[in-house]
């Protein structure tokens, strides 16, 4: 692995296996210290809950909301470790981007499609992902990665479905990428 480290020119990405081992250690430490693993979608769900709390508290506090357990006993939905974690993800991503000179405001897309098309696709894809992670009780990291790390059935099923569906639909959306 060191060979990549030694001659690491700026802007070159880290060796994926090295990154994987490091990420695995981070997951391990997360379980060791906090009882839970990584997570990303939970924080955004909590942001939604917070917004609902200010606009439509009656909905959030009723049984009709999937997030009503975020606010039982007068809890603040944002006072949760997942929210702190996502703040960390932003900071960590920014630091790495700064070190590797990748900080740049841009809309990345395949040369074959317009920026507008990519923007719409990103928005729709995000919405589908949001729905999916709500049903799946977590996203690629919280349900998938953590689940596989602890050998939970849910983790393996969710990962199999994410990649399975990805490959099934890849052909239909190939124009977006290649």
């Amino acid at each position: 692995m060191e060979d990549i480290k030694i001659q690491k020119p700026p802007k070159k990405y880290m060796n994926p296996y090295l990154a994987g081992v490091l990420l695995g250690i981070v997951i391990l430490l997360s379980f060791y210290f906090t009882r839970e693993g990584l997570g990303a979608s939970g924080a955004f769900k909590r942001v939604v809950a917070k917004v609902e709390q200010t606009i439509v508290p009656s909905h959030l506090e009723s049984e009709n909301s999937a997030f009503h357990h975020y606010v039982t006993d007068g809890k603040d939905p944002l006072k949760n470790r997942l929210v702190y974690m996502i703040v960390g993800v932003f900071i960590g991503g920014f630091i790495s981007g700064a070190i590797n000179r990748r900080l740049k405001l841009k809309l990345e897309h395949s040369p074959k499609i317009t920026s507008k098309k990519r923007a719409i696709a990103a928005l729709i894809g995000g919405a589908l992902f949001g729905l999916g992670s709500a049903f799946g009780r977590g996203c690629t990291s919280g349900a998938g990665l953590d689940g596989m790390a602890v050998l939970a059935t849910s983790g393996f099923v969710v990962v199999a479905m994410i990649f399975g569906a990805g490959y099934v639909f890849a052909w239909f959306f190939r124009k977006l990428w290649i």
């Binding site: 839970e36 693993g37 990584l38 997570g39 990303a40 979608s41 939970g42 769900k45 049984e63 357990h69 975020y70 039982t72 997942l82 992670s133 009780r137 977590g138 996203c139 990291s141 919280g142 349900a143 953590d146």
Partner: peptide, 12 residues
């Protein structure tokens, strides 16, 4: 009487 269902939070 509905019992408040205490579902454990999703990890993600």
């Amino acid at each position: 009487k509905k019992s408040a269902s205490k579902e454990e939070e999703g990890g993600c």
